[in-house]
Design a protein around this nucleic acid. Sequence first.
RNA 1: GGCGGCGUACCCAAGUGGCAAGGGAGAGGUCUGCAAAACCUUUAUGCAGCGGUUCAAAUCCGCUCGCCGCCUCCA
Length: 485
Amino acid sequence: MKIYNTLSREKEEFIPLMEDKVRIYACGVTVYDYCHIGHARSAIVFDVIRRYLKHKGFHVTYIRNFTDIDDKIINRANQEGITWDTVAGKYTDEYYRDMDRLGVGRADAEPKATEYIQEMIDIVKGLVEKGFAYEADGSVYFSVDTFSGYGKLSKRDPEEMIAGARVEVDERKKNPLDFALWKKSKEGEPFWESPWGLGRPGWHIECSAMSLKHLGESFDIHGGGADLLFPHHENEIAQSEAFTGKPFARFWIHNGFITIDKEKMSKSLGNFFTIREVLDTFDPEVIRLFLLSTHYRSPIEFSDEQLHESETSIDRYYSTIMRINDFLEKDYNVKNDFSNSGKIFKDLLFSFRDRFGEAMDDDFNTALALGHIFEIIREANRFLDHKPSGTKDRELLLLTKELLSEAGSVLNIFDRTPHEWYLSLMKIKKIGLSEQDILEKISERQDARQKKDWGSADAIRKELEEKGIILEDKKDRTDWKIKVG
RNA sequence: GGCGGCGUACCCAAGUGGCAAGGGAGAGGUCUGCAAAACCUUUAUGCAGCGGUUCAAAUCCGCUCGCCGCCUCCA
């Protein structure tokens, strides 16, 4: 399998450092506010990467951290007149609420920066002793000049960066690119004791400390949003490799941004939607499908229209499952051969696992994988149109369900029954009726239909349709669905 | 200014040397009491533009145009 490695800017064959074990560290969030849909993308991308590697049989250790001490948290606490750890605690809880709803699994460990203060201090101390860092006025800085590989991830030349005017000038730094490993705490700020006095950790050092602790000096995959590439990940490499003398992460994976009007969604631009806002109008599965229908490295333009299309796609899956279920419920005559259309469908179905795997093996190409999934859905419908019959045909449709659900489990979609899907839509779309109400209307309409009173029957259907409920007449009954798109 | 990415149909989107996936929208049709769903047909001799390399280019190279990102906190 191939993974695009930011370090080489190429797709590389992925071979874990330890036989069948894969160790992944992904940068999580700073818990100072509700998460927006961009955070959801990153979380879902790495969730799928982890699920797929497991699916392939790797033993995966996945670590995702929380930054729970930081300027933004402190500012927020000051604004609201509460303590910094109350802020961090609150938004950690909110983060879990959003992620649970989105079907993002918990990592194997979810360390918080403040639980690793001692480990961070040990690394900083080591870096000072080895001459990679220096103390200045109670703070400790990493000396970029001492680390020859500085810039290898972001492909930047330190000399040229200094020329760029946007690097903040700090008198205490030997080189403007030097970054804080340990920050002296100001009056009223949270602090921990250290060999350099009272202070708190710099931002980058936490990931070095926590990955070292949980995954060791060298591990397989380090990931995060593309905006972390520089300076965060560049600095992590410098600190970690200077400290251990060993290569840090083998593969660097960066997910692309979500855009609004082609511009990056971000807190500072104010053009963001929180996860919970989007969850108000769309089912979590719809959001997952939307985010996975574009390759993880490409930007995704956030739009209502696209979300509606994803909703239609998910509905297409559940409608097809309903059709298959209807077919499987029926009596069948025992016949052991495939029908003609069965033979054609069989070939496509039997090759599905390979094609799905091929797509995912190619740098987690979920968009292509979904293409294969929807091809199966189309062909299954076509097969059903051709009046399948007999045991062999039945088996094909059972296999269809199995394959779709297996592929879905990697993406963590398709895990409900059609009925559950429609009940969820009923809530989200605020249909004013209960299922009981709908069933009563249906039965009322059935009576009218028996009497061939088409006028009344159509009136009931129209009435329901105006409320967002679609009726589907079948041979022996009428099913209801929620209108999508 | 430095570095990087992107531009594929009406819309979204895969495709990195060999017949342009998949979905949505539109139009027409089959099925149906009528619908819905589903299926079928239809929509790029064409991949921002112009050159070049090659038997062969969306794909490789060069230039041009347009959009975006990073270089400061960011998923």
